[in-house]
Write a protein that binds this DNA or RNA. Sequence first.
DNA 1: GTAAACGTTCCACCGCACGGCAAGGTCAAG
DNA 2: CTTGACCTTGCCGTGCGGTGGAACGTTTAC
Lengths: 132, 132
Amino acid sequence: MRIGELAEQAGMTTKTLRFYEQAQVLPQPARTASGYRDYDETSLARLRFVRAAQGAGLSLAEIRTIITVREDQGPPCGHVTALLDRHAAALDERIAELEATREEVRRLRDRAATLNPAACSEDGVCHVIPTH
Amino acid sequence: MRIGELAEQAGMTTKTLRFYEQAQVLPQPARTASGYRDYDETSLARLRFVRAAQGAGLSLAEIRTIITVREDQGPPCGHVTALLDRHAAALDERIAELEATREEVRRLRDRAATLNPAACSEDGVCHVIPTH
DNA sequence: GTAAACGTTCCACCGCACGGCAAGGTCAAG
DNA sequence: CTTGACCTTGCCGTGCGGTGGAACGTTTAC
């Protein structure tokens, strides 16, 4: 199977496939006599796995560790479980940060609605955003 | 006032100040005869404003637009209000995305707890992450 | 006079997941 | 034989907010 064909089936570009190969989330395929990449049927399954893992917010580096663990030690369930736990915690933290920022933005928005533009002092940039 | 002094008072590095100048959120200061930057008292207020605006999640590019509007048209209240509204909407969207990802991660985590590692098929990478 | 502690410019790099383009090789159809 | 569609490698650019280092000039203290 040629690269363009696989890319089409996976809904990705050939660029992405070559990038995944370099990122070691897609194994180096066989080559034809003239140097063309020649993929087997397992490649599409691998690409689907990568996409599913990305859907869970995993980076290519993290996906690579799962693949490496699998190749070295068999089913990577323990590794994946720990990875997912860490990810859930990181997401909690990130969401909390964004929610705090959202609250700050809303506070400022309300402030903007009550302040008089004419009262904006000369020497600041904007009295809606307090500097302390 | 020299750059190191201002940096210390603002709790930033000299690198950051020069970067802000290039990003046009900090005006180009006067120079001494030998070419050293020579800041006035308004600079610290400006840096505090930048930091406060960053705290509300505004990018340097957005902060620059506020400053530009202020310089061109006076108090930028209307501009800032619109900016904050757009930001609140973007934050809502981003938080919703992350929450969806978090749900997906938790679903997978629960799945990992119930699946038998020995049942992991030979030809996939990890049966915890389904490739539907 | 000299050494330390500052200052200057410019260029490169970080993570992340690709996209664009160039210069060339290969393969099938007409 | 030629055209066009495909493939190869390689290197640079993207956005964001800086950080690091090199190579060199200035100021201050002793």
